[in-house]
C-alpha cells in the first residue's frame, strides 16, 4: 500500500497537470451547448427549386470532357440546377440550363454562403483557406471561408469543388475548438486524437486514477463515517 501511495504521488506530480487540463477542458465542453457549437441557429434550408424545364442533355456535356464520366448528379446549387460530373481526372460543375462550366469562385462562394445563412449579419470577408487551423480541422483543403459580421462572428465554409456548405462555426465553436485541442493534446494542429503522446499520457493517467481508486480503500477509517454508522449501531441496540 505504501508503494501504491508513492506511485500515486509521483504519477500525480508528473501527469497531474494533464489530468487537470483534461478535467477542465472536458468540463468546459460539457458546459457549451452542442447546438450552439454546431452553429445550428444560423442554418437556412435551401429554397425549393422547380425542376429544370429544358436542361442540356448529359450526352452533349460529355462531348466537352476529356475523360469518361464515372458519376453524374443533376441537383440544385443555390438558385439554379447544375450537373456535377465526376471523371477519373476531376469533379466539375456545369449549369444545367446552358451547359456552361460553373466554378466556385469567391463571388459564388459568397452567394452560396448567404443562401445558407439565417442570421442578421452581412458578409464581412471571403478568403480561400489552405492551411489547417482549429476551424478547419479534418477538412479537405483548400476551402472558402465566408465570415459574417454578426455578434457571434458566424463563418461558413464552402467546398470549392461542389459548392456545398461544408460546415459552419461561430465564437462558441471557436471556444469549444480551443478546449477540444487541449483535450486531445493536438498541439500541432491536425494530428487528431490517435497520437503516441496522448496514448502514453492516458496510460499513465489511467494508472493515476486506478492507484487513487485502490488508495480509497485504505484512506477511510470507521471514524470518517461515524455520523452515519453510530445511529445505525444505536438502532441495532449495540
Amino acid at each position: 500500500m505504501f508503494l501504491i501511495r508513492t506511485l500515486h504521488k509521483w504519477f500525480g506530480l508528473i501527469l497531474g497537470l494533464q489530468f487537470l487540463l483534461w478535467s477542465i477542458s472536458g468540463a468546459m465542453m460539457a458546459m457549451l451547448d452542442a447546438k450552439k457549437v454546431a452553429a445550428e441557429d444560423s442554418e437556412r434550408a435551401p429554397p425549393s427549386l422547380a425542376q429544370p424545364l429544358s436542361p442540356v442533355r448529359l450526352a452533349s456535356l460529355a462531348q466537352s470532357l476529356e475523360a469518361p464520366i464515372l458519376r453524374a448528379r443533376l441537383r440544385p446549387l443555390g438558385e439554379h440546377y447544375v450537373y456535377e460530373i465526376e471523371t477519373p481526372l476531376d469533379l466539375r460543375l456545369f449549369d444545367a440550363a446552358t451547359g456552361a462550366p460553373v466554378t466556385i469562385d469567391a463571388a459564388r462562394a459568397k452567394a452560396l454562403a448567404q443562401g445558407g445563412y439565417a442570421g442578421a449579419g452581412a458578409v464581412a470577408s471571403v478568403d480561400k483557406i489552405d492551411k489547417v487551423s482549429g476551424e478547419v480541422r479534418g477538412v479537405k483543403l483548400p476551402v472558402w471561408r465566408v465570415a459574417f459580421d454578426d455578434p457571434e462572428h458566424t463563418t461558413l465554409f464552402v467546398d470549392p469543388g461542389t459548392g456545398a456548405i461544408h460546415h459552419r462555426v461561430n465564437d462558441t465553436t471557436r471556444t469549444w475548438n480551443l478546449f477540444w485541442m487541449i483535450h486531445i493534446m493536438d498541439y500541432p494542429n491536425g494530428a487528431g486524437f490517435n497520437h503516441p503522446l496522448i496514448v502514453t499520457v492516458a496510460t499513465g493517467c489511467a494508472w493515476l486514477a486506478l492507484s487513487g481508486f485502490i488508495l480509497l480503500f485504505r484512506s477511510f477509517r470507521r471514524q470518517d463515517f461515524a455520523y452515519l454508522l453510530d445511529p445505525i449501531d444505536k438502532l441495532r441496540g449495540r
Binding site: P52, R57, L58, L61, A62, P68, I69, L70, A72
Partner: peptide
C-alpha cells in the same frame, strides 16, 4: 465509365 449515349437522360 458510363457512356451517356447508352443510358436514359437524367432529366
Amino acid at each position: 465509365p458510363v457512356d451517356p449515349a447508352s443510358v436514359r437522360d437524367p432529366a
